[in-house]
Write a protein that binds this DNA or RNA. Structure first.
Lengths: 220, 220
DNA sequence: ACTAATTTTTAGACTTGCCTAAATTTTGTT
DNA sequence: AACAAAATTTAGGCAAGTCTAAAAATTAGT
């Protein structure tokens, strides 16, 4: 049985690997987990012994197949718990992350499979992230960042890149939810901000906001 | 924040205190937790420093008010999770104990209070044990062991003393569930076994079975 | 009441995860 | 290419929780 700590390392490395071609560096992992680089080095040796990562001193770290499998199972559990918390217990989408961080370590495939059925086999979590199936397969959508939409193009909001409390609450204030239609009215090249029209009204989104919103382009 | 280990010690001491006037002994605790006496002694010193137990060397151990509060909160969580697993995820009553042992350590009053509401404020868990309220208050019923019923007396099955897989599965086989009416037809003084009539048919219960079933007496 | 058996405690050691400080390797700059 | 800066690793330590073996206290038996 991997400990909570091992699970957290593997999950962090998975997250870092996903967004870059390079292996995850010691410092990146330390940052992600709030520990010190020396601690990480130590742990990498142990994870390597357990065949969860590919590790050579001073090189970056990547997950082995076994490591990826573990990471995806934790992510699956995390996201299903988030759906449960939002759908069944009425938590808001900005409140569920920390709880899911605890619940994801509960060790029972039977439990999580029943939970999945209870929730009616959701494909995405409350932030729009895909839920891996029991084999670790993740469905991909052809979503793009809102920054990729040209003036006049329309889309549906499908997810957020940054699911920090602050960003999610900002979206709440603007009454923007997953599934909402959205249309880019105007792009200011100066600061890359965009005027967008939603269900309700027009907003001006900063470049940062646009980078953090996923949409599926709607063809005319 | 108490660690999982601390929570488990406190819960074990609570359970031992409940069934005897004496404080829990080092060996009893070690047995209950599957550790060695030396380890327990060590831990008792630490729990005492944290004001969770009353401890004097070579005397038994009892919980302080603070310790009881912690124990009851863990028990509350354990039992609510059990209800969830049985009511919502269709686990059987003999399957939920180990999972609840993990889930009871999830640290969030908000979560457990919402769960309680989601489950419609159940008063008893799937084994008939009362669920402490958020202040730690437990409702008591005037239930007695089936051994306390005289020949001819009737009752309703309200709980089990021993919630081991084996005993619960034995009851399943006999189709005996909480809430079932039951009547003692005959008592064999020789081995204290009883012939009882349930909903469906008559069974002969050994003394051991009768000791482990709680019933509420029905007046005529 | 005294010794034997049992229980409990102490002592010393191990593992997991974490830290700081110092050494080493890699990377970047001129 | 050589040196400085940054990243990484090594070394040595600490806390929590566990163990075994041995010592001390309590309890039980005659």
């Amino acid at each position: 049985m991997p400990s909570f700590t091992v699970e957290n390392y593997v999950k962090a490395i998975y997250g870092l690997n996903k967004h870059s071609e390079e292996g995850a560096s010691t410092n990146q992992i330390a940052d992600a987990l709030g520990t010190k680089a020396a601690t990480v080095t130590d742990m990498l040796r142990k994870l390597s012994e357990r065949k969860l990562i590919n590790y050579k001193k001073y090189q970056g770290t990547t997950l082995t197949e076994k490591g990826k499998e573990l990471a995806l199972n934790i992510i699956r559990k995390h996201r299903l718990w988030e759906v449960f918390l939002v759908e069944k217990l009425d938590f808001k989408w900005d409140e569920v992350h920390d709880l899911a961080e605890e619940l994801e370590h509960i060790n029972s495939d039977e439990l999580i499979n029943r939970m999945e059925a209870f929730l009616d086999h959701p494909k995405f979590d409350p932030h729009g992230d895909p839920i891996p199936d029991r084999k670790g397969k993740v469905e991909s959508r052809n979503q793009v960042a809102l920054t990729d939409l040209k003036s006049g193009e329309k889309g549906l909001v499908t997810g957020v890149v940054d699911s920090s409390k602050e960003f999610l609450q900002y979206l709440d204030t603007l009454k923007i939810e997953l599934g909402n239609p959205i249309e880019v009215k105007q792009i200011f090249e100066y600061d890359k901000s965009r005027v967008v029209k939603t269900n309700i009204r027009e907003h001006t989104f900063s470049h940062q906001v646009c980078k953090n919103l996923f949409v599926i382009k709607q063809e005319e």
